[in-house]
């Protein structure tokens, strides 16, 4: 098989899991960063007493 084609296939095969990991990283950056206990919380899912405003 063509030498260039082998390299290309290797790159493409590496790119697939890499792209997936990047998409997951994007998800995680939204989901886990900047945790905040103190912000106005969703009263429907906030189990503490601190609902809505003071």
């Amino acid at each position: 098989m063509d030498f260039q084609l082998i390299i290309v296939l290797a790159i493409v095969l590496l790119a697939v899991p890499y792209a997936w990991s990047q998409i997951r990283a994007g998800w995680k950056s939204g989901d886990s960063n900047h945790h905040c206990d103190h912000c106005p919380a969703n009263p429907e899912t906030d189990s503490s007493d601190r609902k809505g405003r003071f």
């Binding site: 998409i23 994007g26 998800w27 995680k28 950056s29 939204g30 989901d31 886990s32 905040c36 912000c39 919380a41 969703n42 899912t45 906030d46």
Partner: peptide, 12 residues
């Protein structure tokens, strides 16, 4: 994706 994730996080 990131917006969806942060909205999920912030609205819990």
């Amino acid at each position: 994706m990131a917006t969806f994730a942060i909205v999920r996080h912030e609205t819990n």
